[in-house]
Write a protein that binds this DNA or RNA. Structure first.
Length: 903
RNA sequence: GCGGGUGUGGCGGAACUGGUAGACGCGCUGGAUUCAAAAUCCAGUUCUGGUGACAGAGUGUCGGUUCGAUUCCGACCACCCGCACCA
């Protein structure tokens, strides 16, 4: 057998070391000659078909579950961009390991797959390649589905859907109508990025340096009336709910908390001074305790009052326009200098009518937060101080550090009022603040709010950074918003019986703008209420709407209502959700909101849809740059012996760049399909799980993938060589005293590995699980166990090993299971339970330290007396030498762990 | 600026609640096998010194607690991520 296999050519046989182009020679295995080589190319499709034929991964209903507890594993569904990438391989492999593992552990598992299929790339493809978005999308889905199937994922494909299926979005429209009637939805004006050349609305990511990505035109802000889901109404609950999500990463909860951005403060009305008859100006502050330190007020350039004033003042209009131009500038990279312009208006101090404060328009005041207007206390706010120093406005300190001596206090206040450039924002006591004097910050806030409420000019309030979720998109390839605009009746919901509002197929993308809007007939309908001519809403939903409830639809994908209550009540919450951390905020927050809204409209019975969340790291790869500065694909590179790189064709030197996450733009991508073709899905799965902890980035390397492939072959060789000498299937176990020491050691190792690996997978520590298998394989190879007891121990070891690799390398496991003489499939085999009695050893190795430094070790009975351990430790030659005749002051003995002799 | 995270061999990374640092993999070195290579197998591989047994140093830096610290505490440095004028 050996001789035959030695003649085989491996995929690497012609490879010069480090030469990817050569390494990628296809895996050619000639049947017959190569019986000792594992042939993934024939085995993998065979077992994929076997699983499909036996319906291995079809989901059982609650009634069919026969008391098995349910377990819902979900990976974030993919956008059908064309082909799967390594990030998908990592994400779906992890989910599959959990799904298969839980299934073997006796759970009734739901593990579905679908497609997040609406979105702009389909429209871009339509423009660039003249294909219809639907065609482009469904073709991509077909490609990616077959790629995912080639990975051998244990998925119930009968539940598959795409969000662009009318059967899906019909229910999304129904949900929206329910939300609408429940008062969860509102329409209001909102700014969009408008491309004046293409006459189209741009998403934020289509605006690059203030210009449209396609036209290059300067982007304008335009106000449109748009649909909003009132997520802010649930801000408090969304925040509170975070505390219950104990199986979410702390980091994600924190990010959501910051995003929601709850703050407590006060709204205060400032009356205009003099004879001004305007309504009082409403401001928001978190520091009502510093009201006595007010030195001016400011409104945002976007404030309605600013617009009003600008109408009569061209200089002010110019200033506002300048501010807004800066506002569109991406990322606000440089700290924009604080600038303002006096309005000429003055306001009365709420607590002291004799004090008037000038009102500015200031570029640092945000319209989107609070009321778009502030009062400024420069002494205790850095921004206000910067502004005050620039425009020479008064600085009035009203909070001082506690327990300052009189002289120090005077010096502190004088400095802050005159020259200090750093505001004092710490805790302290109120000074120069009338009725607040002497109170600490917290009490002063409370007292100030009470006073405002008493005077009827303000109130304590809670404010959120979170804003309502604008769901309108002026695009074709999305779910139509099911409403009709009637001249007489206003906004009229489409009757549910008429759902879905389907997208028309006959659209063109030769002109800019929304094809729905310019379609000759689609939008013209009769008003459902009065029957007069009316028009459809031509906006479609943000695609985050589609992905905010798909997890619920998977529970009953064919139901005639959005959800089947019995099904969602059984399956939800998702027990383990897995995806990229890039969705930590929006997708996950929107889904949490949707659950609450669906709960409120009776479609669901819970508020938190994802009980366990895991955010996996990215897949990275080295980058390569040619002499001309262009990025190169890994397969265009040849590595030389000395580690330098050359171009495979031109031979010119290539610069090896930093390791970065795989991206098309940097070309540092490896195509999963070519990996599967050459090594098989199991190798790809095994490698992507090994090496790095799943939450961290993993670097894809050729050497690592080859290492995984070598292990597949090694495992197969180990198994096929040992198989003839194993005891027959089903041979009863032996009593412990019937084992030889070697066989007993292997028997123990089997159970110890099983216990440890089970724990690792349970906790998603896949890299450690992989390492344990390697360790186990090493000790199996080294085992000297023989005879009937050895044959039994070896069978047990191999059976455990096959079962343990089965969630990770399912095809190899099935093939191996057969070699072991089984007629059933591993996928139908229960996960074994480790025997606790075998987990602890009778004797333990204890390190012996002298003054904390390890000198030697002793092997001694686990339950040995302390005195015995001490005696054994002191008797060691090396220990004696280390003690060197010095008096022993103390001997610390931790049974089973360590001995430390202090001299 | 604010918040969070991470720093361990040539590389990716192990080390349970403070108890033998470097499991496992990659790479590398030597050997076996081979006409030769590939594959495979065996041995070695933290660093420094020594032929060697061995000795010393060592988990980003500095300090602390402890019989004992990768682990706990304090200060600092570097990198990564999120938010970024949030009143």
């Amino acid at each position: 057998m050996r001789a035959a296999s030695a003649a085989l050519s491996s995929p690497f046989s012609s490879a010069r070391r480090g030469h990817p182009a050569c390494r990628r020679a296809p895996l050619i295995v000639k049947p017959g000659i190569m019986s000792t080589r594992y042939n993934a190319r024939t085995a993998e499709p065979k077992w994929q078909k076997a699983w499909e034929d036996s319906g291995s991964f079809l989901t059982r209903s609650e009634a069919e579950a026969e008391g098995r507890p349910k377990y819902y594993v979900l990976e974030m569904f993919p956008y059908p961009s064309g082909k799967i990438h390594m990030g998908h391989v990592r994400n779906y492999t992890m989910g599959d390991v959990i799904a298969r593992f839980k299934r073997a552990r006796g759970f009734n598992v739901l593990h579905p797959m679908g497609w997040d299929a609406f979105g702009m790339p389909a429209e871009n493809a339509a423009i660039e390649r003249k294909t219809h978005p639907a065609r482009w999308t469904y073709e991509n889905i077909a490609t990616m589905r077959s790629q995912l199937k080639a990975m051998g994922l244990g998925i119930d494909w009968t539940r598959e859907f795409a969000t662009c299926d009318p059967e899906y979005y019909a229910h999304e429209q129904a949900l929206f109508l329910d939300f609408l009637s429940k008062g969860y939805v509102t329409r209001k004006k909102s700014n969009v990025n408008w491309d004046p050349v293409d006459n189209t609305v741009l998403a934020n990511e289509q605006v690059i340096d203030g210009r449209g990505w396609r036209s290059g035109a300067l982007v304008e802000r335009r106000e449109l009336t748009q649909w909003f889901l009132k997520i802010t109404d649930m801000a408090e609950d969304l925040l509170a709910g975070l505390d219950t999500l104990t199986r979410w990463p702390e980091k994600v909860r924190l990010m959501q908390k910051n995003w929601i951005g709850r703050s407590e403060g006060a709204r205060v009305f400032f009356s205009f001074a003099g004879n001004d008859s305007r309504e009082p100006l409403e401001i928001y502050t978190t520091r009502p305790d510093t009201l006595f330190g007010a030195s001016f007020c400011a409104i945002s350039p976007g404030h309605p009052l600013a617009a009003e004033l600008a109408a009569a003042n061209p200089a002010m209009a110019d200033f506002i326009a300048e501010c807004q131009r800066v506002g569109t500038n991406e990322a606000a990279l440089e700290k924009v200098e604080k600038k303002g312009m006096p309005t000429g208006l003055f306001l009365q101090h709420p607590f002291d009518k004799s004090v008037t404060l000038p009102l500015y328009i200031a570029n640092f005041v945000l319209m989107e937060y609070g009321t778009g207007a502030i009062f400024a206390c420069p002494a205790h706010d850095q921004r206000d101080l910067d502004f005050a120093r620039k425009y020479d406005l008064p600085v009035r300190p009203v909070i001082a550090p506690k327990d300052l001596e009189a002289a120090a206090l005077q010096a502190f206040l004088a400095d802050l009022a005159t020259t200090a450039t750093e505001a004092f924002t710490g805790d302290g006591v109120a000074v120069n603040s009338g009725f607040l004097n002497g109170l600490d910050v917290t009490s002063a806030k409370r007292a100030a709010i009470e006073k405002l409420e008493e005077l009827g000019i303000g109130a304590g309030t809670v404010n959120f950074r979170l804003r309502d979720w604008g769901v309108s998109r002026q695009r074709y390839w999305g779910c139509p918003i099911p409403v009709i605009h009637c001249g007489d009746c206003g906004v009229v919901p489409v009757p549910k019986a008429e759902l879905p509002v389907r997208l028309p197929d006959d659209v063109t993308f030769d002109k800019p703008g929304n094809p729905l809007d310019r379609h000759p007939t689609w939008k013209h309908v009769a008003c459902p209420s009065c029957g007069k001519p009316a028009t459809r809403e031509t906006d479609t939903f943000d695609t985050f709407v589609d992905s905010s409830w798909y997890f619920a639809r998977f529970c009953s994908p064919k139901a005639e209502t959005p959800t089947d209550r019995a099904a969602v009540d059984y399956w939800l919450p998702v027990d383990q959700y897995i995806g990229g951390v890039e969705h930590a905020i929006l997708h996950l927050l929107y889904s949490r909101y949707f659950s609450r809204a669906m709960q409120g409209t009776g479609h669901l019975g819970l508020a938190e849809p994802f009980e366990g969340l895991f955010t996996q790291g990215m897949v990275t790869h080295e980058t390569y740059k040619g002499a001309d500065g262009r990025w190169l694909f890994p397969e265009e590179i040849v590595m030389a012996e000395d580690g330098s790189a050359r171009h495979v064709e031109t031979g010119e030197a290539v610069t090896i760049g930093p390791i970065e996450s795989m991206s098309k733009s940097k070309r540092n991508v490896v195509d999963p399909t070519s990996i599967i073709d050459q090594f098989g899905a199991d190798t790809a799965r095994w490698f992507i799980l090994s090496d790095s902890p799943p939450e961290r980035d993993v670097q894809w390397t050729d050497a690592g993938a080859e290492g995984a492939w070598r292990f597949v072959q090694r495992f197969w060789r180990l198994l096929t060589e040992a198989a003839p000498d194993l005891s027959p299937v089903g041979t009863p176990g032996l009593a412990l005293d019937q084992f030889s020491p070697e066989a007993l050691a292997l028997h123990r190792t089997s159970h110890q590995t099983l216990a440890a690996l089970t724990d690792d997978i349970e906790n998603l520590r896949f890299n450690r699980a992989v390492a344990r298998i390697y360790e186990f394989a090493n000790s199996f190879s080294a085992s000297k166990a023989d005879g009937p007891d050895g044959a039994w121990a070896k069978r047990e070891a191999l059976e455990f090993m096959v079962i343990m690799i089965s969630p990770m390398m399912p095809h190899l496991a099935e093939e191996s299971w057969q070699v072991l003489g089984h007629t059933s499939m591993v996928v139908d085999t229960a996960w074994p339970v480790a025997d606790d009695a075998l987990l602890v050893e009778d004797s333990v190795t204890i390190a012996v330290q002298v003054n904390g430094k390890r000198r030697d070790e002793i092997v001694i009975a686990r339950d040995a007396e302390k005195a015995l351990i001490e005696k054994a430790a002191l008797a060691l030659e090396k220990v004696e030498k280390a003690i060197d005749g010095k008096p022993v002051r103390k001997v610390i003995i931790v049974p089973g762990k360590i001995v430390n002799i202090v001299v």
